[in-house]
Design a protein around this nucleic acid. Sequence first.
DNA 1: CACTATGTCTGCATCGTTGCAGAGCCCTCA
DNA 2: TGAGGGCTCTGCAACGATGCAGACATAGTG
Lengths: 343, 343
Amino acid sequence: MAGPTLRDVAKRANVSIRTVSNVVNGYAPVSDELRARVQAALDELDYRPNLIARNLKQGRSGMIALVVPELDVPYFAELAREVITAARARGYVVMVDQTDGDVERERELLGRNSRATMFDGLLLSPLSVTAEELRARGHRVPIVLLGEHIFNGSFHHVAIDNVSAAREATAHLLALGRRRVAAIGDQPYATGETAQLRTSGYRQAHAREGLEVDERLIVPTPRFHRRQGATAMEQLLTLPEPPDAVFCYNDLLALGAMRALTRAGLRVPDDVAVVGMDDIEEGQYSTPSLTTVAPDKKEIARMAVDVLMESIGGTPRPPAEIVVPHRLIVRESTTGQAPAVPT
Amino acid sequence: MAGPTLRDVAKRANVSIRTVSNVVNGYAPVSDELRARVQAALDELDYRPNLIARNLKQGRSGMIALVVPELDVPYFAELAREVITAARARGYVVMVDQTDGDVERERELLGRNSRATMFDGLLLSPLSVTAEELRARGHRVPIVLLGEHIFNGSFHHVAIDNVSAAREATAHLLALGRRRVAAIGDQPYATGETAQLRTSGYRQAHAREGLEVDERLIVPTPRFHRRQGATAMEQLLTLPEPPDAVFCYNDLLALGAMRALTRAGLRVPDDVAVVGMDDIEEGQYSTPSLTTVAPDKKEIARMAVDVLMESIGGTPRPPAEIVVPHRLIVRESTTGQAPAVPT
DNA sequence: CACTATGTCTGCATCGTTGCAGAGCCCTCA
DNA sequence: TGAGGGCTCTGCAACGATGCAGACATAGTG
């Protein structure tokens, strides 16, 4: 089972362990003849370095962990892809874990026996655990927060400007002449900070147009899945004056809402226009295709990994809030116009 | 940066390193008084065990790797979720990596300096690398193959019965009275073994009904993304006698195909019925919702992890091909009937 | 020719943890 | 009283690799 070690190779080539190590790593000059002899032994035994041992000696593992609530939520899957790619470019591999939004699971990360010590750094997209709590618990491993929770000065944090993003999405609907614009996805409680930012963008857009917000049009949802979007939409349709547009706090909610609208026999965007957030690929292929606010995921991943690398590298900057650009992508669900080709 | 070690704690509590280790692990009996003293020191220093050192000593890491072509392909994301859950139940964590279907990246896994040595086992969903090649290269780590490639006797392999699955999907379309059933996703070359199995199921379904297959209705696609589905569908629509149904080799192709149909002004399923494979969540919320063949992903993940654990545990069984159940889920894209509630 | 510089190669210590074997100590029982 | 046994606790070695300092041989210099 266990493979050959440096010692085995050294014995076979009749050299010191250290020399084999040097050949493997190309660290020190080794004469051609000896190198050949060692290389032969390496090949014959099919030597593979034991990375765990190397890690122990070097005090680093070359691994970072990415912790997200749910990996099968497209936004996180797409983000994970970018993080893996970005980390790879820096010579790191990524361990992906999901917490299912379970506070306990998120807390485990910080606990006494957490696996966190195995990693050089942590990228965390927390759902339930608060930054306060994160700070309170000891942490020995550099952490960068992704997308969720507001800045509290304790951690690096990479996200888009949620208020502007939501304001622009809502403004787009208002500019189309819609006057009863609903919002799906508010979370008026402690861990719903991101959702609250979006609600406040939604309000700002109305305020700038001098419009009142009908509070009944703001529908909170505990989670951001298709199902909640559908349910919220159904609920909105029972209002005496149903909405003529909906701003959903992510694309999954929007897709669920569109599904509910279609089922109710309504047309998108003719009867109700729909906007989402996240720009998941699915929204390009839905019927109708989905207008959305696209965060620059590549950039989020790249910045997060970069900042984490810096923290690991030992030049820790003071915690910074890094704002990544976003842009509104207009598709059929608000204009009825098919864009030329799905991008 | 570096945290306190057992030695630091031992010094503080004025006991031997070994005793601290015993307290941490609960291995040996320790008197209450001493345990309290050690525990106090542990708490004061906020000791966290160095898992890398533990791993080195114990010769296992408690990590397995899951390697998939693309993490943002919903099927793989959903599978990854199940694998992570299944592994977690067995006390393992999962490192997820993606190869982008790049042969080189897949080969790296097996190379001299592969990270594979860091893991106790490997779950591999290969796209380009052949099982032959996998076998040819040395591998010291237990490997279980997922879903792709046919059995060649060298590895454990977990998958559904692709031939039956494709046959049932096609038969469903034929049973609805469709007579020009197209197939999107064939891959008539070395690494397209899974696709070929599906094509052969497609042919079997026709044969059982005594029907000829129009070869022009079989459209190969290099990859299984929405875009290829749309392109293939567009191509099919240019035929003198376009199809009245399509069997797509996965759900993404099917969603792309539906998008192309809608854009061409055709109705699903009235003009063209569509079936996919994989049962990704997106298909429950598409318009129309998507009829599909659902592999039991939970079971795939569970079996794969179980078999891998066995191999790791040192009771290696001879490589087995494990067939996991699947079932046809009928939705609007073939019958026009909305199921009661998206499940 | 003595002396330093250079180029190769090696042994020892170490990373932080756990396995193993055994040292004390106290208690029990013949 | 003394042998035997159980309970605690400890030191040493080892997992497999790398950092460091130095040994040795050869080459270069005045």
